[in-house]
């Protein structure tokens, strides 16, 4: 059986994680291609609906990356976002998905290596968890096997 390649959506703040992703690229750092970056004006733009929709459409993992605490371009966007992401863990648990499939990370635009590290670690975590039951590609296979 081919190795499970998860689909991971990363909601990245324009002022930090998105810049960090850029820097990781300039530094020619490798990180898994499983990450789909979605740029947002601030991590505070994320609401539970964003994350749930991603899972509904088959994402295996979702993370939100915002600025370091105290460094938000909009003063407290990242502080608003973090508890929301933690709340989504609860919502996922109700549905029957593992809460570890979603997380929040803080980083600055100067942290290119950290961006790559988070991408690697998170991909590894999702690989360990296996495909989301809502990932149609892998579900079809498991249905056939059954």
């Amino acid at each position: 059986m081919e190795e499970f390649e998860p689909i991971i959506v990363a909601f990245c703040c324009h002022y930090c994680a998105y810049g960090a992703a850029d820097l990781a690229g300039s530094m020619r750092l490798n990180y898994p291609t499983n990450i789909r970056v979605i740029r947002l004006p601030c991590s505070g733009k994320v609401t539970p609906v964003f994350i749930l929709r991603a899972f509904e459409k088959g994402a295996d993992g979702v993370y939100v990356a915002g600025c370091m605490e105290g460094d938000c371009h909009f003063i407290h966007g990242n502080l608003v976002s973090k508890p929301r992401v933690l709340y989504v863990k609860k919502l996922l648990q109700e549905v029957g998905l593992e809460p570890e499939r979603v997380d929040f990370f803080n980083m600055s635009a100067a942290m290119g290596p950290r961006f790559a590290e988070v991408a690697r670690e998170f991909t590894e975590r999702i690989k360990q968890l296996g495909p989301s039951p809502l990932n149609k590609k892998y579900r079809k296979k498991s249905d056939q096997a059954a």
Partner: peptide, 17 residues
């Protein structure tokens, strides 16, 4: 409206699963 979206999404996921 937001709560409707969240709950609907959860229900769809749970049933789809």
């Amino acid at each position: 409206q937001d709560a409707v979206r969240v709950l609907s999404s959860q229900i769809r996921m749970a049933r789809d699963k």
